[in-house]
């Protein structure tokens, strides 16, 4: 299973590296969200700083939708999804590979957005350990749930518009948990953030486990 996951993740990341959609479209989109919030709330710079954590994760959330849509779109070209079913690859490995590739892209995006939050919102980086662990746990949950719902929507006719409707409510706990943990870190009270990190960890474990079990059946119907 892990061998197959590495194979699929390597393939997806190589394709993303070549197509540059993540760097030329998803990343600018996420930065644009930060900039638009900065324009909208600039009159009260204190509010921007206080809301920095939430705005950061809203940008990540919307970018997740784009990233998992793109991840599934790779498999819709020229019958690739059928080929995956025929390939002999373990469906759990395919799921883990695709989720891992999305996670890598999201982590890279978060580094970029982190710089944006410091520059645009004036949020000072503090509580580095809590920030990093929160980002890792939240990203694992976002990538796992996103990959699962993306393959669920892949067989639907209106998948592009339906996926955000299905996915965003599911990801709401990640938005809340990651925002609270980031706020705790940025306010210099990391102790309050670890409970939220545990919630994020549970979310990630549940969706990784569920995806590992269910992805094969969902791929059959996609």
């Amino acid at each position: 299973m892990l061998r197959d996951a590495v194979l699929v993740a390597g393939k997806d990341l190589r394709i993303e590296g070549r197509s540059r959609i993540a760097t030329n479209q998803v990343a600018p989109f996420a930065v644009l969200i930060l900039v638009l919030f900065a324009f909208a709330l600039d009159a009260d710079r204190g509010l921007l700083t206080r809301a920095a954590a939430g705005l950061f994760w809203v940008a990540v959330l919307f970018s997740t939708v784009l990233a998992v849509q793109r991840s599934q779109a790779l498999e819709s070209s020229d019958g690739a999804r059928q080929a995956l079913r025929l390939s002999g690859l373990d469906p759990a490995g395919i799921f883990l590979g695709k989720a891992a590739a999305v996670a890598v892209q999201l982590l890279a995006l978060q580094v970029l957005l982190g710089i944006g939050v410091v520059v645009l919102y004036g949020a000072g980086p503090s509580g580095a350990l809590l920030l990093v662990v929160t980002a890792l746990a939240a990203t694992a949950g976002l990538a796992a749930a996103g990959s699962l719902y993306a393959v669920l929507a892949a067989g639907l006719r209106a998948r592009e518009t339906l996926l955000p409707l299905l996915l965003l409510p599911v990801l709401a706990p990640v938005l809340i948990g990651a925002t609270r943990a980031f706020e705790a870190a940025l306010e210099g009270a990391p102790g309050m953030g670890w409970d939220w990190v545990r919630l994020l960890g549970v979310f990630a474990v549940v969706y990784v486990a569920f995806g590992t079990l269910a992805y094969g059946s969902l791929l059959e119907d996609a």
Partner: peptide, 12 residues
């Protein structure tokens, strides 16, 4: 299976 689709990734 060789179908009408080639099952190839354009970017690779």
């Amino acid at each position: 299976l060789l179908g009408h689709a080639t099952f190839l990734y354009d970017e690779l």
